[in-house]
């Protein structure tokens, strides 16, 4: 293999990893600031200017806390839980196209770690194994509250994965490809999928909230009933890993929403910018546009968290199985009819 490709991909992977970590770090600060703003408070403002160093201080605090572990016969699994949660949170970013082609040093550079044929299925696959970290950690804690939290998280994720997959099928029928890069390229101009598949977008958005265990679906860590849910027994940086994985998940699912439904790196007037300002500058603006979309979704996550109260458990299951799944099947049927309207008209003799 060409050694320059290996260098290029390694650099991209490192940068994506660093950016995911940075975004997850500052999401914790943003969450507290947004909460403060919505509740008419000031929020953290002591560490650094306006609280800008707060995430670093939090990290330092978590590292220096005492490492406490419960009396569990499954010590290895107790440690594997947070590590698995973090790994699956970071794995998804491999297939996301962060920008179009750059033209640097006489060669085209694609801002994507890997462009596989089945990228969309890969996303679903990684999301479906994401529950292992929570389940294993909750079970290995040897605590009833943790176990109930883990079982709740697992059943919730399994239920909402069905609706999520079905909502993506309608999108898939329209795009005709599973490659995220091609899906991004099809949305050039203002042909964003959200205008063609609004129902699919809403179902996917609700399922993304459930998959990341965010309010209103955070039954897994329901304080009033379960102390802390699956991470009750965790302390110091192990708990930090669980919380960090949640924020990394939030960043990644915001990215997926932006790429699948909101045009990815496309912005209005991109072809004009390519002609007048050159490929590279237009792409830099594209990356900025993608990150603005991502930050918008992260803000939406926080906005919902501090506005809507938690669901009851039977309401959660009712919403998943009786409302979202029939709705997404209906969406598939409607999409099929619209796509085949010409053939259907001929068949009916219009």
């Amino acid at each position: 293999m060409d050694s320059s490709i290996i260098i290029e991909k390694s650099v991209i992977i490192l940068v994506v990893f660093a950016i995911t970590m940075l975004m997850a770090m500052y999401s914790t600060l943003a969450e507290r600031k947004v909460a403060a703003w919505l509740q008419d408070r000031i929020g953290p403002n002591r560490a650094g200017k306006g609280g800008i160093l707060q995430p670093l201080a939090d990290g330092l605090k978590l590292f220096s806390k005492e490492e406490f572990e419960p009396d569990t016969p499954n010590r290895f699994l107790f440690f594997a839980g947070p590590a698995l949660a973090m790994t699956t949170a970071l794995m998804t970013s491999a297939v996301i196209p962060w920008g179009d082609k750059f033209h640097l040093f006489g060669r085209d550079i694609i801002l994507q770690a890997t462009d596989i044929d089945v990228a969309l299925l890969y996303l679903i696959g990684v999301m479906s194994i994401g529950v292992y970290g929570i389940m294993i950690g909750g079970w290995a804690s040897n605590n009833k509250f943790s176990l109930i939290g883990a079982v709740r998280a697992a059943s919730q994720m399994i239920s909402y994965e069905v609706a999520m997959g079905l909502s993506l099928i309608a999108l898939l029928m329209m795009t005709g490809t599973l490659s995220l890069r091609e899906i991004s390229m099809q949305q050039a101009g203002m042909n964003w999928n959200v205008f063609y598949q609004p129902l699919s977008f809403f179902i996917f958005l609700i399922c993304a909230f459930a998959e990341t265990n965010r309010t209103p679906f955070d039954l897994a860590e329901c304080e009033t009933e379960l102390v802390g849910g699956y991470h009750t027994e965790y302390s110091s940086m192990k708990m930090g890993f669980y919380l960090f994985a949640e924020y990394a998940n939030m960043f990644i699912s915001s990215t997926i929403l932006a790429v699948l439904f909101f045009g990815g790196y496309n912005y209005p007037g991109m072809s004009w910018a390519v002609e007048n300002w050159g490929v590279n500058l237009a792409n830099v603006i594209g990356i900025i546009a993608l990150f603005i979309k991502i930050c918008g979704f992260i803000f939406l996550y926080m906005w919902v968290r501090w506005t809507i109260p938690r669901f009851r458990y039977d309401q959660l299951m009712h919403l998943g199985w009786r409302i979202l799944i029939p709705l997404s099947i209906l969406n598939i049927i409607i999409t099929g009819i619209v796509m085949l309207r010409a053939e259907i008209a001929i068949y009916l003799g219009f």
């Binding site: 044929d117 299925l121 890969y122 389940m135 176990l147 697992a154 399994i158």
Partner: peptide, 26 residues
Amino acid sequence: SQFLAIMHIIVYSGAIMILFLFTIML
């Protein structure tokens, strides 16, 4: 065969084994 590999992970590791674990834990 990327498709088979990913489908294998989604169906077996992602769905069936999680249900197994779930049942065993309960």
